[in-house]
Amino acid sequence: MIATAPIEVTGEVVGLRHSGAYHQLTLLAPGVPERFRPGSFVTLSRRGELSTSWLPSSLPISRSRTNAYGGTVELVFDGTDAGTRWLSRVGAGDRLAVVGPLGRTFTLPREPVVCTLVGSGEGSASLIPLAELLRDRGCTVHMVLTAASEQRLFGALEAKRVARTVLLSTGDLAEVLSGLVARTRTDVLYACGPMATLRTVARVADDEGVWSQTALLTPMPCGTGICHGCVLRACVDGPVFRGNPLR
């Protein structure tokens, strides 16, 4: 599915809080939440030429709300890499240039099937709105949160709120996932994370004979497809890909 037409707006930072190894940014971005679908992302940049953070950062939307103030989106990011370090220093009231929502989004099943959602690190964040939507459609939702270390797991609390079962894993994802898919009779696997995670998910999906859709977390210098900077053109052909070709 392709997100509805993206827009350019000036966003305003509502708040930035720390959550484990990550930062959670709430941004007033009028018009963006209305167009949001799970899997889509925005680019954020600071206007002004002295900025060392001159390239925009592309971040998946992890929550969107429309309200009397015009709508907010929430974004979760690492804050230690070159792409998001600058964002970890913004404060309430700061104005940012926002473009979005961008990218191909998750496709939803027509039937109320069993879905397992796999989030790696901060990738878990953008699966929460997907989980909510699936649940509202009568799907059974299981979630697997995975990361290299316990500190880097994200979203356990939010996941517990929306999913029937939540599995935290810092070990061998393929093994954990194969067992879970069989046990829960999963029909569809969704995932969000770096390429290594997505490959594992796609492989398990193939082995277990289930359908998969995966959202790639990768630096996207422009987010709109004009710069040809990212691998696989994740910004326009993704970030959500069918699992099989990734293998």
């Binding site: 002295l50 060392t52 953070s53 001159w54 390239l55 070159a82 210098p221 040809h228 900077g229 990212c230």
Partner: peptide, 22 residues
């Protein structure tokens, strides 16, 4: 296919872009 990734990197007040785009 273009140059090997990464093909774009940020810089102060600008960016570095590799030579061959896909």
């Amino acid at each position: 296919e273009g140059d090997p990734a990464p093909r774009v990197a940020g810089a102060v007040s600008g960016l570095l872009h590799s030579w061959e785009t896909p």
